[in-house]
Simulated scan of single mutants.
Amino acid sequence: MIETTQIEKTSWGTNQGKEVFLYTLTNALGSQLQVATYGGILVSFKTADKAGNFGEVLLGKDNLEDYLDNTCYLGVIAGRFANRIAKGKVTIDGTDYTLATNNGENFLHGGAKGFDQKVWDVVEEKSENGTTSLVLSYVSADGEENLPGTMTTQVKYSLTDDNEIVLEYTATTDKKTVINLTSHPYFNLKGEGDIADVDLKLNCEFFTPIDETCIPTGEIISVKGTPFDFTETKKIGLEIDADYEQNRIGVGYDHNLVINKPYGEFGFVGEAYDATTGRAMSVYTTEPGIQFYTGNWLEGEKGRNQTALIKREGFCLEAQHYPDTPNQPHFPSAELNPGETYTQKTVYKFFVK
């Protein structure tokens, strides 16, 4: 145990004419979280295993220059609208908006230059009462990525002495718009290698199947009798390559699952566990859905030391609204009006067992 929580700031280069900083947050257990002001990236999280040895549990890169080529969105804040929108088409109050199609024929994770490629401003940094926090802000101009409204977003990153990474988002707009914010960390509880042997349990009884372009069909179906049933703990890799159309389309898992809790309520999403290291992680959120992605397209992406990552070297549990929500009126709404404040809270809690 260290005596106090700490926060340190390091210059990490410049981008878009602004200095970029890397912040290191340390808790009383000795765990360390690194956050970059470029893209709001979760760069690193080192925490203890069952033997007390500290190791990396996030996929990441070494420096700012490497993150300028981040095709798999390692650790970024995805916005204004995370995940996919069909054919880049959105209609808001009768006005049609055409967005970038940067994922085949669809819009993905904010478009051509989303929040993942912006330099965020530092609003606050502090360490007190067992929690170390950093608040970043970004003002997205009216019409940025062709979406309406000047949108002001803040993300608060906290590392607690209970070994929790807490992400709290707020946003306001001066015109009606759509919003879906999430963080995109890739977890590997043993540090490297395939994640097939990770045990996973999800509090999700339904999921939203996708078409051949990875857009939700609009259906919301039961996970029972499908490879998507993680209501009881099983290995991620057990049915990942099952002879099931949804696994074929996603090349594994790359789907939104419906969290079994009242809409807007903060609640339990699931738990992952690696028996080799004893590390476990539980997830909680206010969001209605969780995008479960098994790194099916990681192969060739450069990680630390310019080492090529392998397919399925990390898994993502991205708390968010459902993909393509603006075009699916029966999905929970992702609209934001002037005078309203968008809020989102997600917690990743780490422990050993």
Rank of each mutant, 00 (worst) to 15 (best):
A100Y: 02
G60A: 10
P262E: 15
L64Y: 07
T152L: 03
P329Y: 10
Y273D: 01
I77N: 03
K50Q: 14
A280D: 01
V347Q: 04
E335Q: 10
F187M: 07
G250E: 12
M151E: 13
Y138Q: 14
I220K: 15
G264V: 01
D161L: 00
P326R: 06
R304S: 04
P216S: 11
Y38E: 02
G289F: 01
G55I: 02
L200G: 02
K46S: 07
T343R: 07
V352T: 15
D62G: 06
L74H: 05
G295S: 06
L22C: 10
G30V: 09
V198D: 03
G114Y: 06
G130V: 09
H321P: 01
L74I: 12
Y253M: 06
E318I: 02
N102E: 09
G225H: 04
N296D: 11
L74V: 09
F266N: 08
S282L: 04
H184K: 04
G111P: 10
G149M: 05
T14R: 03
Y348W: 11
K176Q: 15
G60L: 06
N327W: 14
E335V: 15
A78G: 08
F107N: 12
E56I: 08
L309T: 03
T14V: 12
F266T: 06
G111E: 10
G218P: 06
D199A: 11
A319I: 01
Y293G: 05
E219Q: 15
T226H: 12
T95D: 13
E125I: 04
I290A: 11
T276Y: 11
D174A: 03
L64P: 04
P329N: 14
Y67R: 07
S183E: 08
I7N: 07
V283G: 03
E318S: 06
D66S: 14
A171Q: 09
I236S: 03
G278S: 12
H321Y: 14
I310Y: 04
E192H: 11
N103K: 08
V35Q: 03
P185Y: 05
L189N: 08
K176P: 14
K156H: 00
C316W: 00
K311P: 00
G30E: 11
Y23F: 15
F206M: 13
N129R: 07
V35G: 05
K87D: 09
L42V: 02
L68N: 01
Q32W: 01
Y263Q: 13
V166C: 06
C72V: 14
Y38C: 03
N63P: 02
I41A: 12
L59M: 12
D199K: 15
N53P: 06
C204W: 04
L336K: 02
F187T: 05
P209T: 08
K46F: 00
P338I: 08
I2L: 15
I41K: 06
A171C: 07
L159A: 04
T276K: 15
G314K: 03
D254T: 08
D69T: 15
T325Q: 08
T285P: 02
T286K: 03
T325V: 10
I2A: 07
G264E: 05
Q32V: 12
G52N: 09
T98C: 00
E271H: 09
T170M: 05
W120I: 07
E8A: 14
N163Q: 08
K176V: 13
A112W: 00
S137M: 13
G40H: 12
D194K: 14
T213G: 05
P216E: 11
G75H: 11
E145P: 01
Q6Y: 07
